[in-house]
Write a protein that binds this DNA or RNA. Structure first.
Lengths: 119, 119
DNA sequence: GTCTTATTTCAATATTCGTTGAATTATGGA
DNA sequence: TCCATAATTCAACGAATATTGAAATAAGAC
């Protein structure tokens, strides 16, 4: 991943509504969610949501497919993972002891504990 | 991590110069880097860099300590990791098969291959 | 004290961003 | 065809952002 792509992805996620949308799609998985369903769940105006979907799509974070008269949006995990890798690239100059979370675990495992922010 | 904190961290990283600064600090590890060293490496005006450091600091992504007349900036891995966990929380509704990169590996391991973006 | 280095603060500017409202396109049903 | 649903596009507004140049603060050397 190039810097310019990472900035685009980060900028796309750096907005509360878009972050909510993306996380909803991440949790929805490969099946995705219809635009209307997202609008209802997050209580967003359809045109506003359209604007945000477009940002996420341009950043490569989601894809769309049509199903009847609904547009189904799906998170792109490849881009998300590429971004995570980019952020942590060569962390600590190679000594990962100070910076190694385990991400994307199955549902049951508690995952907020390991990387506790202490300030 | 709360949504508001995640947005703050993402916004802080969603700028090319700040992203470069942060990644430089991530690679520098716990020892950190002096502001001047960062300015030199990235060819940034000192006041511009000051502005960006402040953003990173307010987002909890870096800390500072003084050493002589230099200010040493250090990446905060706890925040970074909390952000990564927040992004991937409950991904795929619990089925991590479609979305599981391994991040923050030691230097030798090649890490850009697993999450290849195919478009 | 004065001088130099290191970094921050302040004010000003152009640019970008998010939301709203109205109008428009696209699909499917009667 | 006519109508309803689903979503997008367009124009406009106030708010936030990144950079620049000049001035100020902090620490150490002489």
């Amino acid at each position: 991943m190039e810097t310019i792509d990472a900035v685009a992805a980060l900028a796309a996620l750096a907005q509360d509504n878009r972050l909510d949308v993306f996380r909803l799609l991440v949790q929805a998985g490969p099946e995705g969610l219809a635009a209307g369903a997202v609008a209802e769940r997050l209580a967003l105006a359809p045109n506003t949501l359209s604007f945000h979907f477009d940002r996420l799509r341009q950043a490569g974070l989601v894809t769309v497919r049509r199903e009847g008269r609904s547009l189904i949006y799906v998170a792109r995990f490849e881009t998300m993972n590429a971004l995570l890798l980019y952020l942590t690239e060569n962390c600590c100059g190679g000594d990962a002891s100070a910076c190694a979370p385990t991400i994307c675990q199955p549902k049951g495992a508690p995952r907020g504990k390991k990387a506790k922010v202490n300030a």
